[in-house]
Design a protein around this nucleic acid. Structure first.
Lengths: 161, 161
DNA sequence: ATGATTAAGCTAAGCACTTAGCTAGAATAG
DNA sequence: CTATTCTAGCTAAGTGCTTAGCTTAATCAT
């Protein structure tokens, strides 16, 4: 407990001895761990000329399977961002030729975002590297511990409060 | 495993059957859990006329103990943000009278950020409410499970890679 | 002493998100 | 059919961070 969060808890203990600040130990480490993980992943993305949001869009299209086409609304749902954020991401990806906007044949209002061959090639090259980075991040934990962590996170993450 | 992350893993399984995507189960849940936690905390902050960044500054000053004064550089370190982000936070907090900038008597370049009485009163009122929200978020887990989660997070968060 | 380098804190500009508001097409009511 | 309402996707403006670059004071070398 000599990490940053541990030090913070000791400060609270000294300043507010009556207060039970133990929840901060968990939530604090959760936030900080998420931040450091995010920054390590960013390194891998950069090596492939991507950032987290570009990787997110391309990977979502890839894992959706052939014909690798989704609507902006579907992309927004998957990425938990607004449809306007999707539009801005697509503007950049389309300019780079990694995705293409097509008219939705079944809905005149709608657009289908297609993964181009270039985009598919890029994400398929970046994906194994990304997984390798994730494995490295988790390497201090055994397989059982990783499973336990995922389970614990799932139990607090999916509570709609 | 019928949550959002579980669905994503199934998609990868179908599209790239050879690939071991198990790290995504852990990292994905970590990111999403951090996001949902953040959004629940935001509700509490708002009830007290604060947001996460304002709470962060005021709480850091409070837990530093009397005389409740820190330099902008110290605040930046504690909050893991740039000193320029601190300056912008302080501009707003100072305008509201929650903190005050004072000259550092020992360093002509330096500033000391002081928690005002108003600021101290506000953060002391918000703090128990915040802890209550954190407790609610963690309530699906037993005390032992919470401790286990904090331990696992600590082991992957503090690895400098 | 004095000139060069380092350090603290700030503003300015850039970036990725948000919400608000727009346009065009689809669905629904009469 | 036509008028209204709803939906998909977009741009515009606002927010809070980042990095770059500035000013001022401290430190260090000679």
């Amino acid at each position: 407990m000599t990490d940053q969060v541990g030090r913070i808890l000791e400060q609270w203990q000294r300043e507010k001895p009556g207060l039970d600040v133990s929840p901060m130990a968990v939530i604090g480490r959760l936030s900080r761990t998420a931040l450091t993980v995010e920054s390590r992943l960013a390194g891998t993305f950069e090596r492939h000329g991507l950032d987290a949001s570009a990787f997110d869009v391309l990977a979502t299209l890839l894992r959706s399977g052939a014909p690798y086409r989704l609507s902006p609304a579907e992309l927004a749902l998957e990425s938990m961002i607004s449809t306007s954020a999707v539009a801005q991401r697509l503007n950049k990806l389309e300019a780079r030729g990694l995705v293409a906007r097509e008219a939705n044949p079944n809905d005149g209002r709608g657009t289908l975002v297609a993964l181009t061959d270039t985009g598919k090639g890029l994400i398929e090259k970046a994906l194994p590297d990304h997984l390798e980075t994730e494995r490295a991040i988790l390497s201090p934990l055994s397989g059982d511990e990783q499973a336990a962590l995922a389970l614990l996170l799932g139990r607090i993450g999916n509570t709609e409060g």
